[in-house]
């Protein structure tokens, strides 16, 4: 059975099922406490441990931990912000695997084997005047809740944050509501717009290119958002995926950003854009044999950093049709 991933702003059914699923996962005891996780992970990952209080974690929290751990994993040669989940070609396949595992957990807790993650096509809101963007149909008590401050309205008011990135460390702290700060960063007044997606999916654009990092101009980096391809070589404000994180702010800022269900909505849209690229350009991945400066752990057949579910390689996720499809791809 495969899931269909729908637009959260046009499918109330997909939205409500997702919100019910994430609230259930955020309340479901995983059977692990933070001190137990330190006993498991500290020997396996030298230099890593959780800080803060000893407390039981939920299934939802384990995804936060997984993302944070992957972000700490080096890929050599070292490059700024490149790790085994970000800043290189592995960004899209790793997050595809990560989302797939959450989708399967939502299917389990909702009892609906065809529940698909919804995506947030942020370019629709990006077309609104900046001051109206934090008040679009995504937000409010029928949807994702408050866009600024503590999330105290809507279904997500029930969610609690237990693991938080503090600097480059992951801390276990007294459970608290989600926090956001949408649209208040003066450098990032608005969400990405339709033209950004058009540029990212420009005809003939390759998947990724040397030096396979945050400076490379290819589809991966255009959607990850480290460059603005219209201003090559210049330091730019965060674009696309990065921009959505920064625009929302709050818990979407640190490496613990999977705390907020918006993380998955953002990445689901990113994955949808990748699916559009794959459909147009073939189910290909780079770097491949014969390429120069290939970053470690980011090859087609390298096992991706996995804490939950079966470990996959980029080669395993280039065709996702056995798991899910999108109701609509960008034209």
């Amino acid at each position: 059975m495969t899931a269909v991933r729908a637009n959260i702003q046009t499918s109330a059914q997909a939205r409500d099922r997702y919100l019910a699923g994430v609230v259930a996962l955020n309340a479901e005891r995983s059977g692990y406490t933070t001190s137990q996780l330190n006993q498991i992970l500290s020997p396996a990952i030298p230099g890593f441990r959780l800080y803060g209080v000893d407390q039981p974690l939920t299934t939802w929290d384990l995804f936060v931990l997984w993302h944070f751990v992957a972000m700490q994993m080096p890929s050599t040669p070292p490059r700024p912000m490149r790790n085994l989940a970000h800043g290189g070609p592995i960004f899209l396949p790793w997050h595809r695997m990560f989302l797939l595992r959450l989708e399967q957990q939502i299917q389990r807790v909702t009892g609906d084997a065809e529940a698909g993650l919804p995506y947030w096509d942020w370019t629709a809101d990006g077309g609104l005047p900046a001051d109206q963007q934090p008040a679009s149909s995504l937000w409010g008590s029928a949807g994702l809740g408050d866009a600024r401050g503590d999330v105290v309205s809507g279904p997500l008011a029930a969610m609690r944050v237990r693991l938080v990135g503090h600097g480059t460390q992951l801390w276990s702290a007294a459970p608290r509501p989600l926090q956001r700060n949408a649209g208040s960063d003066p450098d990032v007044p608005g969400l990405p717009v339709a033209d950004d997606v058009k540029t990212a999916l420009e005809e003939g654009i390759g998947y990724d290119t040397v030096p396979w990092d945050v400076s490379a101009d290819g589809f991966r980096n255009r959607v990850e958002g480290w460059i603005d391809p219209r201003r090559p070589g210049q330091a730019s404000a965060p674009q696309m995926h990065n921009r959505v994180h920064v625009w929302i702010g709050g818990d979407m800022g640190p490496g613990s950003s999977p705390n907020d269900p918006l993380f998955y909505l953002n990445h689901c849209n990113v994955d949808r854009l990748w699916e559009a690229w794959l459909g147009r350009n073939g189910r290909r991945y780079s770097p491949g044999d014969g390429d120069q400066q290939i970053p470690s752990g980011q090859g087609l057949n390298d096992t991706m950093v996995t804490l939950l579910g079966e470990a996959l390689r980029p080669a395993d996720v280039l065709d996702a049709s056995r798991w899910y499809s999108y109701d609509n791809l960008p034209a």
Partner: peptide, 18 residues
């Protein structure tokens, strides 16, 4: 589902997070 976590994770680089 949590088997990889129990065994300390899969796909980690040699030398871990040092």
């Amino acid at each position: 589902f949590t088997a990889p976590l129990r065994s300390g994770g899969y796909g980690l680089p040699p030398g871990g997070a040092a």
